[in-house]
Amino acid sequence: MRSLSVDKPEQKVAFRGGGFTFQSRRWVGFLVFIMLLLLAEWGTRSGVISPLTLPKPTDVFQIFVELYSSGLLFQHLIPSLLRLLVGAALGASLGIAVGLLIGLFSFVRAGLLPLVAAIFPIPKIALLPLFVIWFGIDEGSKYALIAFGTFTPTVVATFAAVDNVDRTLIRMGQSFGLSWVSIVRKIVLPGAMPGILAGLRISLAIAIILLVAAEMLGAEFGIGAYILQAGSLYDLERLFAGVVILSVLGVLVSAVIGAVERRLLDWRT
């Protein structure tokens, strides 16, 4: 055999199986971010970008330092975080509960699914005046708005996740005579958890958007109020400082959910 291939061309088989797999490359995102910042800094300093278009990143940073040292940062941040926490916790837990009910009982599904479909597309911000009348101009209406906004996407994600739970596992539970509660708690709920958490990612982002909206309409303190004040004065540095806080909040929420996923869903590959 060997002698036969002596004068035939030899070539290594080329690798063509790369790509299309997910690899963790955290630093790339970070690098893109730094590059953009550097670009903005260079542009504003050299005058390519006029100061009316974009504030200088270093100036925005300066604002942060001031905010922090004057204690104003926490004066705005803490009420916002509280509203987000209360509103989102309320909306998400109610949403998961209702989603489970819709997923588990066909009667509830028949009754509530059209209602959810009707509520889902309403821009919740439009209902703020109504909430102000119902729950008062103070914190109540803000909690309600955020809760309501997180509620519907959580419901939809949860019942879809319940629908997707492997039926053979439920059959298995029944065949071993597990109680209904056990089947829901030990089979349906963990099986739906990936879908529920994916839904929460979206719901919580919506919660942040609604938080700002609520604070823009009648709040003395809060990130939304701060951004609104800065915006009405065309104070771009302050405006950007507020926006950066929101972005950081979004990243943090996403990181928290990522951590929860790693903890609860470590059984996945």
Binding site: T168, R171, M172, F176, G177, P190, W267
Partner: peptide, 15 residues
């Protein structure tokens, strides 16, 4: 559990 199944696809809880 008098009547007990063994399934073709194992039906183990992955978690």
């Amino acid at each position: 559990n008098p009547l007990t199944f063994i399934f073709q696809d194992f039906a183990l809880l992955p978690w």
